[in-house]
């Protein structure tokens, strides 16, 4: 049995839910959703500053650094080189060695580029980063990333922002069987609370999501739903579910049933 808390490279988090900071209707709603999610880690993106309009509020005014660990991502990078440079900038901006590593291979699906992802992982591990790669739900790739020094593997449940849930339970099960020494965190694809619960019931160590909360009609309420789903799913996993059976098994005793002659 893995440890009680989600622990990544020695850093323990009080929640197994990691949430994003993008696409919220406002920073204030984001702040409230973060609060409701119970999460202690949030992803952020690295982007050029706007040199023509500096009046915009800063995201960082709405994230308490004492409460949340910042997890800069390399979203939008299509080569290992771009991802490595973005990770270095993210470390300097966020003062955190943790990186959610993305190397994207296709605009339409936003599926990862496996070769670039592995190359970038190796480089960043060597530079002392805590690398958390967003990867396909592919056990071979997960093992390669683990062997390259990744601190966690983060397989997709479905395409980013799709809300399709965990599309391939078998692939995720294979990853969970093979990767037992570092956390397996489902990243991308969750659409609603039951998707998060499914991932956790299967034995995933955590779930990372952005759009499912930020894009919900009521993000704060959905954040709470996700918190409860992740907790419920984890509890169910630890409790151990009953085996599935084709036919009924009576819950009430047969002995003493009235009216039987």
């Amino acid at each position: 049995m893995k440890s009680e808390k989600l622990t990544i490279a020695g850093r323990s988090l009080g929640s197994r839910l990691i949430v994003g900071t993008g696409k919220y209707p406002s920073f204030e709603i984001m702040r409230q959703a973060h609060e409701a999610s119970g999460s202690e880690a949030v992803t952020v993106a690295v982007r050029r500053v706007n040199l023509s309009d500096r009046s915009k509020e800063s995201l960082l005014d709405y994230i308490d650094p004492k409460r949340f660990m910042l997890l800069p991502n390399t979203a939008g990078c299509y080569t290992a080189d771009d991802a490595v440079r973005t990770a270095r900038l993210g470390r300097e901006a966020g003062l955190s060695s943790f990186v959610k590593l993305e190397v994207i291979g296709d605009e339409k699906t936003l599926f990862p580029d496996n070769e670039g992802l592995l190359e970038a992982t190796r480089i960043l591990v060597k530079e002392g980063f805590v690398v958390m790669p967003y990867t396909n739900d592919d056990v071979v790739m997960a093992k390669k990333l683990r062997d390259a020094g990744a601190a966690a593997v983060m397989p997709l449940g479905a395409p980013i922002g799709s809300g399709l849930g965990i599309r391939n339970l078998v692939n995720l099960t294979l990853i969970l069987e093979a990767i037992t020494d570092i956390p397996v965190i489902v990243d991308a694809g969750v659409g609603t609370a039951s998707d998060a619960a499914v991932a956790m019931e299967m034995g995933c160590d955590g779930v990372l999501m952005n759009t499912a909360i930020a894009g919900a009609r009521d993000p704060v309420r959905m954040a709470r739903a996700m918190r409860l789903a992740v907790e419920a799913g984890r509890l169910a996993f630890e409790a151990g579910r009953i085996p599935r059976k084709l036919y009924a098994t009576a819950s009430s005793p047969l002995e003493g049933t009235p009216f039987i002659p």
Partner: peptide, 10 residues
């Protein structure tokens, strides 16, 4: 120069 900051993302 590349001058960047942290913004919302997933």
């Amino acid at each position: 120069f590349e001058v960047v900051t942290l913004v919302g993302g997933g």
